[in-house]
């Protein structure tokens, strides 16, 4: 997240910068957030430090986690097999714990493209990709992806050949999906670090493709 969005002159009591838009008039729901947090801290349910730690952990989870997983799967056939067999276990062993949920990795191949959605709400593989982008939570994406995925993908600039099978995976609270994109040609002999640079967030949702080398 670019730091130039922050106003460095105003730091919160926790030392975190406020964003400029925090200077907008206090809203009812913001008031409620402050009130709940303070009541919980006063009652000893959790501490201010725990709230801050949770936010730091949240900020640390981003698509570079998923990119490491994808790059490793491209590089190590045994890891790829383990990832496809049990995504929760394979990613937990890399330090990206999804908790009690199930993670299913779905592989893009020459003839199959996968895309993920949550029609009911906003379920997303947060351990690998961080918080979902706004569009993932919209009525438009949730409604249409299961009905006309090719049209939706075209809006993201992904034009699937007619012959390519398109599989849509509808996430639930307990079952999250991640797309394992196809490894781009021309990357033979690349290190996992180099490969990870090609893996975009959207390529792991299925609304994008990895960057091409060059």
């Amino acid at each position: 997240m670019p730091h130039d969005h922050y106003d460095h002159h105003h730091l919160s009591p926790s030392g975190h910068p406020y964003r400029e838009d925090n200077d907008a008039p206090l809203s009812y729901w913001q008031t409620m957030e402050i009130a709940i947090r303070e009541i919980m801290i006063e009652k000893g349910e959790f501490t201010a430090a725990e709230v801050n730690a949770q936010i730091e952990a949240m900020d640390a989870r981003n698509p570079t986690n998923g990119a490491k997983v994808v790059a490793r799967a491209w590089d190590e056939p045994s890891f790829k097999a383990a990832l496809l067999a049990d995504g929760s276990k394979a990613t937990r062993e890399m330090g990206f714990d999804i908790g009690p949920m199930n993670l299913v990795a779905v592989e893009n191949t020459e003839d199959t493209h996968n895309v993920i959605v949550c029609t009911l709400c906003s379920c997303y593989p947060r351990n690998l990709l961080g918080l979902p982008p706004d569009w993932y939570k919209t009525r438009e994406y949730r409604s249409r992806t299961v009905k006309e995925p090719r049209k939706v993908l075209a809006e993201f600039g992904v034009d699937l050949p007619e012959a390519t099978t398109c599989r849509v995976h509808d996430s639930t609270a307990d079952m999250r999906y991640i797309v394992l994109p196809a490894r781009p040609a021309g990357t033979e002999g690349w290190s996992q670090e180099q490969l990870a640079e090609l893996v975009t967030r959207d390529s792991m949702i299925g609304t994008g493709l990895p960057k091409v080398p060059g």
Binding site: Y18, I34, L120, W135, R139, E140, S143, K147, V152, D170
Partner: peptide
């Protein structure tokens, strides 16, 4: 339960999450 409903183009607006 919105899956399959008709809807317009997917909006691509994005905001950074505020502290609150």
């Amino acid at each position: 339960d919105m899956g399959g409903d008709a809807a317009g183009p997917v909006p691509n607006d994005q905001h950074d999450f505020a502290l609150w």
